[in-house]
Write a protein that binds this DNA or RNA. Sequence first.
DNA 1: GCTTGCTCCTACAGTGACTGTAGATGGCAT
DNA 2: ATGCCATCTACAGTCACTGTAGGAGCAAGC
Lengths: 149, 149
Amino acid sequence: MSPQPGDFTIGEAARASGVKVTTVRFYESRGLLPAPPRSEGNRRLYAQSHVDRLRFIRHARELGFALEDVATLLSLSDEPDQSCAAVDAIARAQRAEVTRRIARLEALGVELDRMIATCAGGTVGECRVIESLSDHAHCAADHPGPAPM
Amino acid sequence: MSPQPGDFTIGEAARASGVKVTTVRFYESRGLLPAPPRSEGNRRLYAQSHVDRLRFIRHARELGFALEDVATLLSLSDEPDQSCAAVDAIARAQRAEVTRRIARLEALGVELDRMIATCAGGTVGECRVIESLSDHAHCAADHPGPAPM
DNA sequence: GCTTGCTCCTACAGTGACTGTAGATGGCAT
DNA sequence: ATGCCATCTACAGTCACTGTAGGAGCAAGC
C-alpha cells in the first residue's frame, strides 16, 4: 500500500490528535486503535478515522476514564443502534468516582492546613507537622490508599 | 535473639499499625523501615518503635505524600535539632498539589455532568456522551494526564 | 552519491506503590 | 501426627504509560 493523500504518518496522527507517538503505538498494542496498513518502508499509515479515534481516546482519558472504560465506550460507539444506557452508566460511575475523590482530597486539604498552621517554625523536635503524623490514632484502615488521578 | 515481651510478629505489627503484612515487607525493601532482628525461626521481630514508624508512614501516605517524601519526613524526624523548614516546605507542596487536583477534578465533574445531562436515553447513535467525546476540539495538550491520587 | 538529521521501527526495561502467586518453613492446637 | 494458619523468599503482575537501545527510512543540502 503506497501513501495516499489523506494518510497520516504516526507523527502526523500524533500531532493531529494530541496523543504522543509512543502512546499511539501503545494504544495499538492494547487493541484500542486498529493496526493501520503500512507503507513499503513499514511505516504506519493512518486515515482520518484513526485520528478521530485517537481524539476520542484522548478526551476520555482527560476525563479520567480508565483504558478499559475507554475500550468499552469505543466498542459501544461502534454499534450506534444499541441503547446508550451502558454509555450513560459508565459516565455516571465516572462522575461518582470524581465526586468521591474530590471529597477525599478536600479532607486531606483540611488536615494538611491544620498541620501547616500549627508549625511555629522551630526545630523538627517541636514540629507539629511531624507530631501530627506520628500521633495520629489508629482508626480502621478503611481507606485503601491513594486512588489513580 | 529470642522473642521478648513487647516484640511483635509481622502480622501483629501490621494489625497494630494498619499496614498490610506485604506492605510492611515492601517498606523494609524500600528502606523506609529498618530491618528488624529475627527470631530463631527467621521471623521478623518488631519493637514498638517499628510500629510507631509504620503508623507514621501510613498516615503520611493517607495524606497523599509520595514514598520519597515520606522517606524525607522520616529522616528529618530522626534529627530533631534541625530546623523544621524542610518539613514545612514538603507539607506546603503537598497542600498545593491537593489544591491543584481538586481544581482539576472539579472541572472534570462539570464536563461529565454536562455530558450526562444531555443524554436523552436513546441509542448510541444519538448519544450526546459519545458525541461529546468524539467532537471535542483539539486544544493544546497541556494536561499531561491523570496524576496519582 | 554522500552525509546530516529527523522520523520511524521493534523490543524491552522502568516508573510508583503496591498486590498476587508459588513453594517452602514455622509453630501452635487438636 | 495432623491440620492449619502465619510466615518466609523471590518474582511476576497491575496501570498507563515513558524511556532506552539499536537499527532503518527518507528528505534535503553539498
